[in-house]
Amino acid sequence: MKAAPFDYVRVSSIDEACQALADGGEDARVIAGGQTLIPLMAMRLARPALLIDINDVKELSGIAVDSDHLVIKARTRQADTLSSEIVQEKLPLLADALSHVGHTQTRNRGTVGGSLVNADPSAEIPLIAQTLGAIIVARSTRGERTIAAGDFFDSAMSTTLAPDECLTEVHFPIWSPENTGFGFHEVSIRDSDFALAVAAAQTTLDAGGNVQKLAVAICGATPAALKLTDIEEALIGTDLNDDIIKVACAKIDDLIDPQSDVHADAAYRGRVAKVMARRAISDARDGAKGDLV
């Protein structure tokens, strides 16, 4: 399990990275944590001709609040994000999700941007980006652009990022904490396996306990994280009782077309996707109600 040969360059600025990408052509790839890419290269399922190492790019690391968004730079380690007090305070859903990403050791290398770019169908960070409608910022020698999460995730392990673009940061909307709760549930075979189905939800209730705002997305049973817009809309204004949640989540059957693999068949994935969505939404409700009490 040795990678095919490749060239390597270490860059120290975003501009250098973009230039290297522009020069490197289709077979150039940015590497930061490498926790997904390196195993794929070891199995020769990925064979970039050039790796551009952005670990020294200081401007790609950091977490900050920008008015109503939390901005996480692409190369910020998952471990640093998980332990960040700002993240825990402003984006507890992301903090919860991050505790399910890999292990301590992979989180110490793995980055937030890397997870978004790799777009694994069961990855937690893309799911939260999709749930909350994050904005992704990418740069190339052609300039900078922003991409809504809904337009970013394409299919399994594939995004709409152009080959010469470098993801630089992701902006997560911050919700007002009042009467807001979140829920995150995933089913995996072992504790830290890639999830078979995952769901994330966040809701804000009005003073009467009815849904004012709701965000729900699932992954694992879908090629890419899927925002459940129809279900969100159907639940606005309701009191989110268990029956209402169950009826709404039944619609997931029509929205997804899960695949079978060695770990689970499609039918199982479909059933547990609904279970995860129900649990995530009801946890979000309970969290929000806790604020009301």
Binding site: V187, I189, H263, A264, D265, Y268, V272
Partner: peptide, 8 residues
């Protein structure tokens, strides 16, 4: 007895 077997 895998998760999918038991759930099914």
């Amino acid at each position: 007895m895998r998760v999918r077997d038991l759930e099914a």
